[in-house]
């Protein structure tokens, strides 16, 4: 699934990374606890979260993730957007709540494939 498709499914706005919407995403993870996110390595993953602080972007960066989706229309700070741009991360924001956003992506074939190192 491409990031562009995720944007369509989640009726999301692009905050940054418009030029990377054609990039592929292979798995997903929905959490507000960053250490839980860090526990599982996923391949070219998207992170869905309701948490808004710089560590969300850092976590995605460390995990080599390709996209962050903020649920419930949450908006990242300018500082977070700068960090995301440095790491070529796409940021989306969707009006949907976490459960609904994850459900829609799963329903459309994006699984949470993950593995322990």
């Amino acid at each position: 699934m491409t990031i562009g498709t995720i944007k369509e499914i989640l009726e999301a706005e692009v905050v940054c990374g418009e030029e990377s919407l054609d990039n592929e995403v292979f798995s997903a993870c929905g959490s507000d606890m960053m250490s839980d996110v860090l526990a599982y390595v996923k391949n070219q993953a998207v992170l869905l979260t309701g948490l808004v602080n710089s560590q969300v972007v850092r976590t995605a960066e460390m995990m080599d993730m390709v996209c962050i989706v903020f649920v419930r229309s949450k908006k990242p700070t300018p500082e977070m957007i700068e960090l995301a741009k440095d790491s070529s991360l796409v940021i989306l924001t969707t009006p949907m709540r976490m459960y609904e956003a994850c459900g829609k992506l799963y329903e459309n074939g994006l699984r949470g494939e993950s593995r322990h190192v």
Binding site: M33, M34, S35, D36, L38, A39, N53, Q55, V117
Partner: peptide, 16 residues
């Protein structure tokens, strides 16, 4: 509330 303190820090360090 900042997204840490789930008790996964040290176990993750060992895991990786």
């Amino acid at each position: 509330s900042l997204g840490f303190g789930a008790g996964m820090g040290l176990p993750n360090m060992k895991r990786y």
